[in-house]
Design a protein around this nucleic acid. Sequence first.
RNA 1: GCCGGGGUAGCCAAGCGGACUACGGCGCCAGUCUUGAAAACUGGUGCUCCUUGCGAGCCCAUGGGUUCGAAUCCCAUCCCCGGCGCCA
Length: 437
Amino acid sequence: MLDIKLIRENPEMVRANLERRHQPEKLELLQQVADADKRWRELTAQVNGLRKRRNDVSQEIAQAMKAGKDASSLKAEASRIPDEINAHESELEAKQAFVKNGLMRLPNLLHESVPYGKDDKDNVVVKVWGEPPKFGFSPSSHAELSQSLGIADFERAAKVTGTGFYYLRNEMALLDYSIMRYAMDLLLSRGYSLIEPPYMIRRSFYEGVTDLGDFENVMYRIEDSENLKDPLYLIATSEHPMGAMLKDEILNADQLPIKMCGVSPCFRREIGSHGKYTKGIFRVHQFNKIEQFIFCLPEQSWELHEELQRNSEALYEGLGLHYRVVNVCTGDIGSIAAKKYDMEAWMADGEFREVGSNSNCTDYQARRLNTRYRMKEGQAPAGFVHTLNNTAIATSRTMIMIMEQYQQADGTIKVPKALQKYMGMKTIEGKLNKMKI
RNA sequence: GCCGGGGUAGCCAAGCGGACUACGGCGCCAGUCUUGAAAACUGGUGCUCCUUGCGAGCCCAUGGGUUCGAAUCCCAUCCCCGGCGCCA
């Protein structure tokens, strides 16, 4: 959420930002918000004047009654004022709601280092690590490999829950947990606190961490929520419960930065098919993820954004996986990020696909969450904190990378050295407690 | 789930229809004093608007209601604490 004062005092800056983002449709919204805010201020002045009259007359009534005088004519006058106030109040509330809603829908200000561009084709590759594996055979997709090894069952998952789900078996289930444990150990060693969050959170908290428009498309709602006005939703990432954790709180500067590493399954209704790489576990309704999340002082966030990036890169490099990093351009970046790096991994068909993203949300998310900081105990809040979030590892997509990059001619898969101690094996051969179904 | 007790500013806490302009304390900020600090003393300490003023409005968990007037009375909802019940 942007600060309304920025729109009052520096609308040109907000306008230029929308143009850089290629969101001309939002220019009109910006103007509407500015107009509604102006009207809100006029109405506020009028209504406050009426409220003052009401308060004054009520005081006179009190004094008259204390003096034993008749106050009935004053009462008659006073009883007319609430109607006048009500006549304006509904418009006042409507304008206020419009401004708030508009502010929620205007995107964050971009950092100057975000490359200008129209769509994902204009993202700028800033790093390439490793090389594509050289196979003396035609490589298979992870979907084919997992089926032939008998370590995943997509047909029965489709039967039971519909498309977009999976049963992992034996080595692949172990691989899932091994990747999580590997990522947890690395981030713990770098000082991040490990968090297992609630897997569902209330809607009112969700509004603080993400876009309102995402709800009905992306999130699963729990029908049986006890409080129907504020129902529970399954989390789409542990970023959300971690962000919501400090809603309406004020942190002391010496408590910051707060660095967390969340572990949880993620639930998403919208998995977008459109013929894009739909086989296997690339796009699914449920997957496990280790997520990094930071609350920090404004002056710390750009340095920490790079730290998060180094952590992600260390995780993939430790697994020996070929990847690249792109600086997401102005036309492709999400609305809450001021700057975003995407991690893209090489897959067996020779394409790079997104496996994680790293965003500095500056104060945009914190303003929605109302998470502030003060320089010292007892002092008034000095401003909003900055928040950052970064996929450390999404196990589903990391499994794809490992299976497709470490496959061998006989259809088995080498286990990256760093995972062998967690897996208890050096090669995935599909022999562990093999199921005859 | 049931029965009690609660939710007041950064924190603690009083108030329980009309001087509440929300008492008091702690913390914090500024000033006086001091070589400096502490102590002491004085003033300030939430949000919004603009005509920036000893200006006005708002704020007592949240949303409604009663009233000329609500922190205070009524209704609904949420949350916390204690006890009982249920339970991996």
